[in-house]
Design a protein around this nucleic acid. Structure first.
Lengths: 151, 151
DNA sequence: TGTCATTTGATACTCAGTTTCATCAATTGA
DNA sequence: TCAATTGATGAAACTGAGTATCAAATGACA
């Protein structure tokens, strides 16, 4: 079963209708290997209206198909979530997003549980990089490091 | 030197004027132990206009005094950053924010560097909790866990 | 105290996303 | 097979958060 099929299957299984707009949107977003913004989809999928694009994205996030990623500034990016639990590597220059998983970190975070009366319900890890492609294209790390306190 | 004094000092040292609005805003935001939103400050500090509040927050983020925290939904929260490098524990119920630091995790993330041609410039870790206060007030974990894929 | 660059704030604007509601389409059931 | 029902759509108006503009005010320093 392809990714496309499995997404459509999931919607069908959960009682949502498979409409033309939804199929067009799924077709478009699975092409975005490195994530996309809502407005990118609005522009790309002219067959679907603004409201439908936003509604469909929300639906897919709710269904666990998409992963919403709030950026420090600008609109959030969405990625098709391959792994059930994962984190993100984000290029600070082009905004592209990749998934990763690091069991050492998972274990360390687990060990924090109940340290001071709070109940841990989850966590999120984002690693900011200058991706190989951007570096090759001449982007320099220094100007970026300054505006990213995350270091 | 108090926190208030050190913030004002920093602005002065960097050539910014110490105006009535800025002092009022600093006075207000240092009271928010658990973070605040821009609109909260707009409401609280009637002596300063909307634009000034937003400008001052941006200035303080630039100066490293405040830490901007993009939320999954809704406006970002700001915290006075005590430690130079730290991460956040966020209550998914009330939105309050606390800082933490975990050297094990730092080390694990450092070891990821240069795994696949990307240059790591920073990272961010957020731990989502139901804080002790909210749990005591009767908030239940289960309803929250569902909507937070972060687990 | 005067000078003047910096800061302010009212207002208008932009941008991202949501609501509304009339219309349309997919499913149900007779 | 054909209504009836319910869910989905989209144009447009709206909301909320934040920014730009620009004349007026003000803090720093001579």
């Amino acid at each position: 079963m392809t990714l496309r099929e499995s997404i459509i299957q999931k919607l069908e299984d959960n009682g949502f209708r498979i409409t033309g707009s939804r199929v067009k949107l799924v077709d478009s977003l699975i092409k975005h290997e490195e994530g996309f913004t809502a407005e990118e989809l609005v522009t790309e999928v002219r067959e679907a209206g603004r409201a439908t694009v936003y509604r469909t994205i929300r639906l897919l996030v709710d269904q666990g198909v998409l992963c919403k990623l709030a950026m420090d500034s600008g609109a959030p990016r969405y990625t098709v979530s391959g792994m059930a639990h994962h984190h993100h590597i984000i290029c600070v220059h082009c905004g592209s997003v990749r998934e990763f998983r690091q069991t050492v970190i998972e274990r360390a975070l687990k060990s924090m549980e109940d340290d001071d009366g709070d109940t841990v319900v989850g966590h999120r890890i984002e690693v900011f990089v200058l991706c190989a492609a951007c570096r090759a294209a001449g982007a320099k790390v220094d100007s970026i490091r300054a505006e990213h306190q995350h270091s």
